[in-house]
């Protein structure tokens, strides 16, 4: 019993302390990859809206969840950028994620034939390009 209690405490401590605030280069790459993944997921989402395959409530709800993920990710990057040597690049990625969150807020109510939809797609593509360019500088 005693062994398992100590084992659990040590394990949980290791799991939680492994999320350090100062990001290593590998962690930064992983974060940029996640940011790109969110942007690509938004493009896929736009495609489904264009084809009229989503229900209104689902579209609004999914856009909210994606937006939350983008904002959470952006604030994590902003916190870590205080200690990071790549402060400017990290800040660029966080800014792009915040722009993505704004696009997602607009997407939550757009319909398939909305004239603003192609423009939104272009802006998301631009966000993706900016993140890709920033990642290349790491």
């Amino acid at each position: 019993m005693k062994f398992w209690s100590v084992f659990s405490v040590v394990t949980l401590a290791l799991v939680f302390t492994s999320q350090a605030k100062t990001l290593s280069n590998e962690e930064l790459r992983s974060d940029f990859q996640s940011a790109l993944s969110l942007a690509s997921e938004t493009e896929l989402f736009i495609g489904q809206i264009e084809k009229g395959r989503l229900l209104a409530q689902f579209q609004a709800g999914h856009a909210d969840y994606l937006r939350d993920a983008a904002m959470r990710h952006a604030s994590k990057l902003r916190e870590s950028s205080r200690d990071s040597g790549d402060r400017k690049i990290v800040a660029t990625c966080a800014e792009q994620l915040e722009s993505l969150a704004r696009e997602l807020a607009l997407l939550s109510t757009m319909s398939g034939n909305d004239e603003a939809l192609p423009k939104a797609r272009e802006r998301v593509e631009a966000i993706k390009s900016s993140i890709t360019a920033a990642r290349a500088e790491l």
């Binding site: 996640s34 993944s37 997921e41 493009e43 969840y65």
Partner: peptide, 11 residues
């Protein structure tokens, strides 16, 4: 193919 890592149930 799109290098998406789906981290949401809704996805």
């Amino acid at each position: 193919p799109h290098q998406i890592f789906p981290a949401l149930l809704s996805t």
